[in-house]
Computed example of a mutant assay.
Amino acid sequence: MLLKRIKCGVFPEQKRRFSFAQEQWQELKAISGFLQQIGGWNVNDANEAYIFSFWENHSAYEAFMKRDHDEIMAKNNQRGTYHRLAVDLYMKASPNDDTFSIMEMLRKSNVLHVWERCEPLSGSCSAEEFIWFQHLHDHRRLLIVPAMPLTDSDGTTVAIEESWTTFRFMEGEET
């Protein structure tokens, strides 16, 4: 599984427009290899948005970027709503390989706690309560913990905007 993490600095006067544009990414549902997109606002910086996009693999993501990304971006008129954009790509590094369970866990979350670090987080959560991702180009790792109290001050808490969430129905789900 591939994770694309997007971190945006949003102009304060453009937050409503940014949020509306983010809701327009529902077209992702029809893209082959797309799994889920979820995002929201950094609770400690009201003008910083995080978007987490999950893909079956790197080749599915690359095909989307070549074929569909720019067209969707142009339709939703999101450019001009942010002044800073950082994109990082990660591969899943967690021992839990159950993609369905991971997507379901994320879908039910109201908040995500995110740490970027090279070493595991010390704490009491089990492997079923978090997801590790390894950066594609360096040793950084990203840890995502849904709905767990923040215990480590170097992490970021993202309040999920339900209207930004889009997902592809997976095998075994009802439509």
Rank of each mutant, 00 (worst) to 15 (best):
I31V: 07
I131G: 08
E56P: 07
K29P: 02
G123K: 02
L3Q: 00
E162C: 11
W55P: 01
Y61S: 02
L143T: 03
A93V: 01
V158G: 01
I6W: 06
S59H: 06
L35S: 05
M73P: 06
S32P: 13
S124E: 11
E161F: 12
G40I: 03
H139C: 11
P120L: 04
L121K: 14
L85N: 04
L142T: 12
Q134R: 13
G123V: 01
E13H: 15
A93E: 04
A127W: 04
E128T: 14
S122K: 01
G80H: 08
A159P: 02
M1P: 06
L150H: 12
A86Y: 08
R67Y: 13
F130A: 00
K108A: 10
N110F: 06
S59Y: 05
T157G: 01
V158S: 11
S153G: 10
D70I: 12
G80C: 14
R84F: 08
A127Y: 10
M91G: 11
E27C: 15
A74T: 03
E162Q: 07
P149F: 00
E129I: 06
A63H: 12
E13S: 13
F54R: 12
D98K: 08
L3S: 00
S124H: 08
R140E: 06
F64G: 03
G39E: 00
G9V: 06
S163Y: 08
D98Y: 04
D97W: 06
Q14T: 11
N96L: 14
R67I: 12
E56S: 13
T175G: 13
M170H: 09
F100G: 06
I144P: 00
P12Y: 14
H139Y: 11
M91R: 15
G9K: 13
F130K: 02
Q37A: 08
F169I: 08
A49N: 06
V114D: 00
Q37H: 04
F54V: 14
K108Y: 13
A21R: 00
E62T: 14
F11Q: 05
E62S: 08
H139V: 04
I31A: 03
S101P: 08
L150V: 13
I102G: 12
I38L: 10
G33Q: 05
E71P: 15
S153T: 11
V111R: 11
I160N: 00
F11C: 01
H135F: 07
R84V: 05
F54Y: 14
T175C: 09
E71S: 14
D70S: 14
W55N: 02
H83F: 15
T165Q: 14
D68E: 15
A21S: 01
S153Q: 15
N110E: 11
